Amino acid sequence: DRIFMTRTEALEFLLKAHQTAVDKIGHPSHKQTPADHAAIEALDRLLLDVRARRVDQFQINASAAQIIVTD
């Protein structure tokens, strides 16, 4: 599946995904793992790359739809 978004929409989408990941590892019942921190770092890099126009398409994980940034 493909989803087309403007750059602004894609950045909002990534910010929400980032916040969800941060909230998940901050929850008291969740045991933090290196994979959790790696996922947040990957989202940080992706946010910067989309914002800087170095990336025009991405996929958060293998089961997610491919996001295509349109400007």
Score class of each variant (00 low, 15 high):
residue 63 S to K: 11
residue 57 Q to D: 04
residue 52 A to K: 09
residue 39 A to N: 10
residue 54 R to I: 10
residue 55 V to I: 13
residue 42 A to T: 12
residue 1 D to R: 02
residue 46 L to F: 02
residue 42 A to Q: 11
residue 43 L to D: 00
residue 30 H to G: 08
residue 58 F to Y: 02
residue 27 H to W: 10
residue 17 A to D: 01
residue 42 A to G: 05
residue 13 F to K: 02
residue 59 Q to M: 09
residue 71 D to Y: 05
residue 24 K to Q: 09
residue 9 E to T: 03
residue 15 L to Q: 12
residue 59 Q to D: 03
residue 33 T to A: 07
residue 28 P to H: 08
residue 33 T to K: 06
residue 2 R to C: 09
residue 1 D to Q: 04
residue 30 H to S: 10
residue 38 A to V: 10
residue 65 A to S: 12
residue 1 D to S: 03
residue 4 F to C: 06
residue 25 I to C: 04
residue 48 L to H: 15
residue 57 Q to F: 12
residue 8 T to M: 12
residue 65 A to E: 08
residue 47 L to R: 05
residue 17 A to C: 06
residue 22 V to E: 04
residue 36 D to L: 15
residue 8 T to D: 13
residue 22 V to Y: 05
residue 10 A to V: 04
residue 37 H to Q: 13
residue 29 S to H: 10
residue 36 D to F: 07
residue 64 A to C: 06
residue 22 V to S: 07
residue 62 A to M: 09
residue 18 H to Y: 15
residue 50 V to P: 00
residue 35 A to I: 06
residue 14 L to N: 00
residue 65 A to F: 11
residue 61 N to V: 07
residue 29 S to Y: 05
residue 54 R to N: 06
residue 71 D to H: 14
residue 70 T to E: 09
residue 26 G to C: 10
residue 61 N to I: 07
residue 54 R to L: 11
residue 4 F to T: 05
residue 3 I to R: 06
residue 65 A to W: 08
residue 50 V to E: 00
residue 56 D to E: 07
residue 64 A to V: 09
residue 41 E to M: 08
residue 68 I to F: 12
residue 67 I to Q: 00
residue 68 I to M: 06
residue 29 S to M: 09
residue 57 Q to N: 10
residue 44 D to Q: 15
residue 70 T to K: 11
residue 57 Q to V: 14
residue 52 A to P: 00
residue 35 A to L: 08
residue 65 A to Q: 10
residue 33 T to Q: 10
residue 66 Q to V: 15
residue 48 L to V: 13
residue 17 A to M: 14
residue 11 L to H: 02
residue 18 H to D: 00
residue 66 Q to H: 12
residue 12 E to V: 08
residue 27 H to R: 12
residue 27 H to G: 10
residue 63 S to H: 13
residue 18 H to W: 15
residue 67 I to Y: 08
residue 14 L to G: 00
residue 18 H to L: 15
residue 32 Q to Y: 12
residue 43 L to R: 00
residue 41 E to A: 14
residue 68 I to S: 04
residue 23 D to A: 14
residue 12 E to Q: 12
residue 14 L to T: 00
residue 46 L to I: 05
residue 43 L to W: 03
residue 23 D to L: 05
residue 14 L to S: 00
residue 44 D to L: 14
residue 21 A to C: 05
residue 8 T to L: 11
residue 32 Q to M: 15
residue 64 A to G: 14
residue 42 A to C: 07
residue 18 H to V: 12
residue 44 D to K: 15
residue 56 D to K: 14
residue 61 N to K: 06
residue 30 H to R: 06
residue 71 D to Q: 06
residue 56 D to R: 13
residue 32 Q to G: 14
residue 33 T to Y: 07
residue 54 R to C: 04
residue 53 R to K: 14
residue 4 F to A: 04
residue 20 T to F: 12
residue 16 K to D: 06
residue 20 T to A: 15
residue 35 A to K: 08
residue 16 K to W: 12
residue 61 N to E: 12
residue 50 V to F: 04
residue 23 D to K: 12
residue 42 A to I: 13
residue 64 A to F: 12
residue 63 S to I: 12
residue 67 I to N: 01
residue 38 A to Y: 11
residue 58 F to M: 01
residue 2 R to F: 10
residue 53 R to P: 01
residue 57 Q to T: 14
residue 13 F to W: 12
residue 8 T to V: 14
residue 3 I to Q: 05
residue 56 D to M: 14
residue 59 Q to H: 07
residue 53 R to S: 11
residue 59 Q to F: 09
residue 36 D to N: 06
residue 67 I to V: 10
residue 13 F to L: 09
residue 12 E to F: 08
residue 19 Q to K: 13
residue 1 D to Y: 03
residue 69 V to M: 06
residue 2 R to P: 08
residue 58 F to E: 00
residue 62 A to E: 13
residue 15 L to M: 13
residue 66 Q to E: 11
residue 7 R to W: 13
residue 40 I to T: 03
residue 39 A to L: 15
residue 71 D to M: 05
residue 19 Q to T: 06
residue 5 M to Y: 02
residue 41 E to W: 05
residue 69 V to R: 01
residue 31 K to R: 08
residue 2 R to K: 13
residue 36 D to T: 05
residue 41 E to C: 08
residue 27 H to Y: 08
residue 36 D to I: 08
residue 29 S to K: 08
residue 48 L to A: 13
residue 50 V to Y: 01
residue 32 Q to T: 14
residue 28 P to I: 09
residue 59 Q to N: 05
residue 59 Q to E: 04
residue 4 F to S: 04
residue 27 H to V: 09
residue 46 L to S: 00
residue 12 E to P: 00
residue 59 Q to V: 07
residue 1 D to I: 03
residue 8 T to I: 13
residue 1 D to A: 02
residue 63 S to V: 11
residue 61 N to C: 06
residue 29 S to F: 08
residue 11 L to D: 01
residue 9 E to D: 06
residue 20 T to D: 14
residue 17 A to K: 04
residue 34 P to Q: 11
residue 58 F to L: 02
residue 70 T to L: 14
residue 6 T to L: 03
residue 25 I to P: 03
residue 26 G to F: 15
residue 32 Q to S: 14
residue 29 S to W: 04
residue 19 Q to D: 05
residue 34 P to N: 08
residue 47 L to E: 01
residue 17 A to S: 05
residue 37 H to C: 07
residue 9 E to V: 04
residue 10 A to D: 00
residue 12 E to G: 06
residue 10 A to P: 00
residue 55 V to F: 02
residue 14 L to Q: 00
residue 66 Q to L: 15
residue 2 R to A: 09
residue 20 T to E: 15
residue 44 D to F: 15
residue 43 L to S: 01
residue 66 Q to T: 13
residue 45 R to F: 04
residue 5 M to Q: 01
residue 15 L to G: 06
residue 6 T to P: 02
residue 49 D to K: 04
residue 20 T to M: 15
residue 20 T to P: 01
residue 5 M to W: 02
residue 63 S to P: 05
residue 9 E to N: 04
residue 59 Q to I: 08
residue 23 D to I: 09
residue 33 T to C: 07
residue 62 A to V: 08
residue 6 T to Q: 03
residue 58 F to R: 00
residue 34 P to K: 09
residue 22 V to R: 10
residue 3 I to P: 01
residue 35 A to C: 04
residue 16 K to N: 08
residue 59 Q to R: 13
residue 46 L to D: 00
residue 11 L to C: 05
residue 8 T to Y: 10
residue 14 L to E: 00
residue 13 F to P: 00
residue 1 D to H: 04
residue 38 A to P: 03
residue 2 R to T: 12
residue 61 N to W: 11
residue 39 A to R: 09
residue 57 Q to C: 10
residue 53 R to W: 05
residue 11 L to N: 02
residue 71 D to N: 06
residue 64 A to K: 08
residue 61 N to Y: 12
residue 30 H to Y: 12
residue 66 Q to P: 07
residue 46 L to W: 02
residue 36 D to P: 03
residue 25 I to R: 05
residue 37 H to I: 14
residue 54 R to G: 03
residue 7 R to A: 03
residue 34 P to V: 09
residue 28 P to T: 08
residue 1 D to F: 02
residue 51 R to H: 09
residue 46 L to C: 02
residue 47 L to Q: 03
residue 40 I to P: 02
residue 23 D to W: 03
residue 18 H to F: 15
residue 56 D to I: 14
residue 49 D to P: 00
residue 55 V to C: 05
residue 36 D to V: 05
residue 1 D to V: 03
residue 35 A to S: 10
residue 70 T to Y: 12
residue 55 V to P: 00
residue 57 Q to H: 14
residue 70 T to G: 04
residue 14 L to W: 00
residue 10 A to M: 01
residue 24 K to V: 08
residue 1 D to M: 02
residue 38 A to L: 12
residue 12 E to D: 11
residue 13 F to G: 01
residue 27 H to E: 12
residue 2 R to M: 11
residue 59 Q to Y: 11
residue 26 G to Y: 14
residue 7 R to I: 08
residue 57 Q to I: 14
residue 69 V to P: 01
residue 47 L to W: 07
residue 17 A to E: 09
residue 31 K to P: 11
residue 16 K to L: 11
residue 28 P to C: 06
residue 5 M to L: 07
residue 33 T to V: 08
residue 8 T to K: 15
residue 62 A to F: 08
residue 26 G to P: 04
residue 54 R to A: 05
residue 11 L to I: 14
residue 6 T to D: 03
residue 33 T to M: 09
residue 70 T to P: 02
residue 53 R to Y: 11
residue 40 I to R: 03
residue 13 F to D: 00
residue 52 A to R: 09
residue 5 M to P: 00
residue 15 L to E: 09
residue 23 D to T: 09
residue 41 E to R: 13
residue 11 L to S: 02
residue 30 H to K: 06
residue 56 D to P: 02
residue 45 R to E: 04
residue 70 T to W: 09
residue 43 L to K: 00
residue 64 A to S: 14
residue 66 Q to K: 11
residue 54 R to H: 06
residue 11 L to P: 00
residue 50 V to H: 01
